[in-house]
Computed example of a mutant assay.
Amino acid sequence: MTDAWEWDPSLYSGSAGYYVRGRAAYPPSLAEAFVAELGLDGSGRLLDVGCGPGSLTLLLAGSFEEAVGLDADADMLAEARRLSEGCRWVHRRAEELPAGLGTFRLVTFAQSFHWFDRPRVAAAVRGMLEPGGICAHVHATTHEGDGSVPHAEIAELVREYLGPVRRAGRGTLPSGTPGGEPEIYRGAGFRGPRRFTVPGRVVTRTADEVVAGVFSLSGSAPHLFGERRAEFEAGLRELLGRASPAGVFTERLREIAVDLWEP
């Protein structure tokens, strides 16, 4: 991510409904691993930062007294509320933390940390952990795996419509999103990490779900195509039809790795 890129509210504009349909759900084994690693017993509070439609929040909520999901996209939170009213959904940017939300036993970042002012957010989160609390960084890919979906051809089709440089909101990410999370966490005063993993799994996806997965991405969010959105989708469906006339695809998702950071 370059210094020139700035977050804006259009980053996932129009993607919320597609996100729910197009992303593979986190497996129950991930929740079981969290319980085993952290001794979760239904007490304490969870904060999921950049929660989207609550994919991880809802999976872990049953292991806490209260689960809070925070996201900057109001449409994502509307999807989360549609799925469950049992959690607290907060419409704020991560940079506004601590935002009077109190302290937490566990704070999670799942496919979200790279969008933030990371040093600022990491420092804020460290101050929001109760004694013995943990910050968890979840490394996962839920929109694609290895298998019969023609991801390379889909990426080329996106480039034909949107250009060779990855789009992100009103800006671009020529070098992609940033890495180097360990340095950020340690710079904020965290110790670790301790890592656990959950094995990958095989999923079956329909053509509709693959299309939704494409539109769930920031780099191919619906608004980016403008008046050519329907044309792009027709081309995408034609491509998928050639790859699988039956409209069914099988993929093996990569393992999920979780880094646990102590304040």
Rank of each mutant, 00 (worst) to 15 (best):
P178G: 07
A4L: 10
D208E: 13
H139P: 00
D117W: 00
P28R: 14
G52V: 07
S29A: 15
R191W: 06
Y19N: 12
P174A: 10
G179M: 07
S216H: 14
Y185V: 07
Q111P: 06
R92F: 02
R195Q: 11
G226S: 07
R126N: 00
E144P: 05
R195F: 08
G52S: 04
A16W: 12
G44T: 12
S220L: 11
R252Q: 08
V210Q: 07
V107E: 08
E65F: 08
G187R: 03
H143N: 14
G226D: 12
S220E: 11
S216R: 03
F109V: 12
A230W: 06
R159Q: 15
P131R: 03
E85A: 10
R93C: 11
Y18D: 14
L239F: 15
E130W: 04
L46W: 00
P131Y: 11
R159H: 02
S15T: 08
L11K: 02
V203N: 05
D146Y: 10
V258I: 08
A94M: 05
E262A: 15
E79P: 08
E181C: 10
G219Q: 13
F113E: 13
G176M: 05
S84R: 06
E183D: 15
L56W: 00
G50R: 07
L260I: 09
S13R: 14
G86D: 01
T197R: 09
G147E: 09
V158H: 05
Y19V: 07
G171Y: 14
R201V: 15
A140C: 03
V49Y: 00
R254G: 07
R170V: 06
S29F: 00
L240F: 04
L77Q: 02
G39D: 12
G247Y: 06
D8M: 13
L239K: 03
L253I: 04
G145T: 06
P222C: 07
R23K: 09
S55E: 14
F113S: 00
L253G: 02
V20H: 11
G145H: 04
S148H: 10
L224T: 01
D75Q: 15
G14Y: 06
A188W: 02
G69D: 13
T57Y: 01
A74P: 13
E95S: 00
G100C: 07
L236Y: 02
E227H: 09
A72K: 05
M76E: 14
G219L: 07
T142F: 10
V35A: 15
G100I: 14
